[in-house]
Simulated scan of single mutants.
Amino acid sequence: MTNFSNTFLNSLQKNKILLWLLILAITLLWGYAWVLMKASLDYMGPFTFSAFRFGVGSLTLLLVMWLMKLGLPPRRYWKPIVIVGILQTSVVFLLVMYGLRFVDAGKSSVLLYSMPMWSSILALKFLGEKITPPKFTGLMIGMLGLLTILGWDIWVGQNIEVIFGELLIIIAAISWAISNVYYRINLQQLAKIQASAYQMLFGTIGIIIAALVMEWNQPIVLNVHSIYYILFTGVLASALCFTVWFLILSLIDMVTATISTLLVPMFGLVFSSLLLNEKMSAGVAVGSGMIIAGILIAQITKKRGIHSHD
């Protein structure tokens, strides 16, 4: 199994098209997951849904590890795993799910994906990555694209609840950025599936505690729809996507990896307009175009130095 993993990693490093297809796949799945996260609030509290989602995700990964006969991670990794679990799973998704009570799914996904900006700043300071002019330009165009999608209503005419929800989601974005950099420093050498499974397990424990404290007596409706939301977001958007995300983080530099995730809010907005009837404005179309342009511009240097951390 280790030989297969190494062969797969090597082929990904050599084949950038395959790597970008993987990025496209997880950003599509994450984009669609936003719709399900918003829709789940009709059936249960936001923390309860997250507990189900990441509980299913953790169990899926632990089962896969058991089938692969992978043991426990070495002792030196336990503390970093717990920290990544709290930052990336507990904090991010507790804040995001609570924020979704006040903010549209499409707009929420846009706010969370201010994460590349925070990641790039942290990578500059803590990983010694240089932001080359094309990367900086691409990042700025992408972030301007996000602001274009949000439109003027983030600055004017907002009620206090919506602003509160938006602030929670921006804090979640900063927490995710910190966990990305912390992962690169402390867990880079650990098997990706182990890192993903155990950080998710510890993160889920934090979410379960929050759900028990905050939503003890709230109704839970389990039917075909809500179970589908739990299984899709748990198995595909969590177990699969976060394992692939850790793989991507270990193969390419932080700035490129995180800029690529700007595709998620674009897909989130498309799915939200199709499935939740959230309005798709001209600003959304222009902003989405800017995000794609930003990602393409950021890739210019990769032609000259594919493996460099620039």
Score class of each variant (00 low, 15 high):
I17V: 15
M68E: 14
G294S: 12
R184G: 13
I248N: 07
Q13M: 06
T301F: 00
S119D: 09
I149W: 14
L12D: 09
M200T: 15
A298T: 08
L275E: 02
K107T: 14
Q88M: 10
S272A: 15
T148R: 12
L63S: 06
L28K: 04
I174S: 03
K14G: 00
H225C: 05
A33P: 02
I252T: 05
A211V: 04
A237H: 04
L212N: 10
A39S: 09
L12M: 13
L262Y: 09
M115D: 08
Q199M: 07
M68K: 15
I227S: 14
I170W: 04
I121N: 06
L144A: 07
L9M: 06
A211P: 01
S281Y: 13
M65P: 06
L72R: 14
K69R: 09
A33V: 10
M1V: 13
K16F: 05
L124I: 00
P80L: 13
V284S: 13
N277M: 10
S226H: 09
W176F: 14
I295M: 11
I193W: 09
I208S: 11
V270G: 05
K125N: 07
I220V: 00
F52M: 08
P133T: 09
S288V: 01
I26Y: 15
L24V: 11
K279T: 05
M214D: 07
V181S: 11
H307K: 10
F49K: 10
L236D: 04
S108M: 12
L22N: 07
F93Y: 14
P46W: 01
M65G: 01
K69F: 03
T7P: 01
I169L: 07
G287A: 11
L111V: 15
I220K: 03
Q299W: 00
G142H: 03
R53A: 13
E278D: 11
M115P: 02
Q194N: 10
M44S: 06
L262A: 01
T261H: 02
L187E: 10
F4Y: 05
V255M: 02
A39F: 04
F4A: 05
K79R: 09
R101M: 12
F52A: 06
I121M: 13
W66I: 00
V270Y: 01
L19W: 01
M280Q: 07
W20V: 04
I160W: 12
K135S: 02
F267W: 15
T7G: 00
L72P: 07
M1P: 11
G85F: 15
H307G: 00
F271L: 07
I81F: 03
N180G: 10
M280S: 09
G57A: 12
S272H: 02
H225Q: 15
T148P: 03
W20G: 03
I227K: 12
I121V: 14
S90G: 13
M68W: 08
G138I: 08
P74T: 03
S108C: 14
F8E: 03
K125Y: 08
S108T: 14
Q188S: 11
K125D: 00
Q158H: 06
A239C: 06
F267D: 04
I174W: 02
S179G: 03
L276Q: 06
I163V: 10
F246N: 02
L144P: 03
I178G: 09
W152A: 03
L18T: 12
F54K: 07
A39W: 00
Q194K: 13
F136N: 03
N277F: 01
Y198I: 01
A105S: 15
A282T: 08
L59I: 15
W216A: 15
Q218A: 12
I17R: 15
L41S: 10
S260H: 02
